[in-house]
Amino acid sequence: MKHIKIKLLIAAVFMFAATSAFADYSYNFSVNTSSVAGQPGYVDLMFNPGDNSLGSATATITNFNTDAALGAALLTGGATGVLPSTVSIVNNALNTNNPYNDDFQQVTFGQNMNFSLNLSGAAGNSFMLYFYDGTVSNSLLTNNLSSGIATEIDMTKNGAIVTNNSNQVTVSATPIPAAAYLFGSGLMGLVGIRRKMKN
């Protein structure tokens, strides 16, 4: 009986980790900005909840490097940090005083832009990457002029969904952290069971 319970617990832990509403995803972004090189504009890193957000989540942008000239940043809502340093965006609830959470940063585009993105926390939140021209009259580097979004990553209960609307953006998942999370959470579960059995 005890063994069956343990197996069930282990299975539950793994299932929780695998399909959890709380997960961790990492991606590498590579953006070819040569078509707009030399132009003034903006890069907009946004992370917002949807109606079905299941809790807190954070988007962290690291390893940002570019040959572009970066300018002033306008941080709104849950955004902290300024590129090229680490930018962290918490999924604060949207309201009149907090219409969105983003780092809206001035840039004179170069040939490329690269960064790493980590999304951690609850499902029901989305990261969005936008590019604008210098007067914020036109969206750049996107095929979806309606939304203006170049690349979007949605955190769902069934995993992350990447929607790339840009021919200039290459986004690739870096699965190791997720696997590590899975392994780690499973390991933590086993340790917990072990302790319970000892007691």
């Binding site: 946004m46 109606d51 969105y100 203006g148």
Partner: peptide, 12 residues
């Protein structure tokens, strides 16, 4: 029914 996080298009 579920929605993704809201985006905001600064142009439109």
């Amino acid at each position: 029914a579920t929605t993704t996080g809201y985006g905001y298009n600064r142009v439109s």
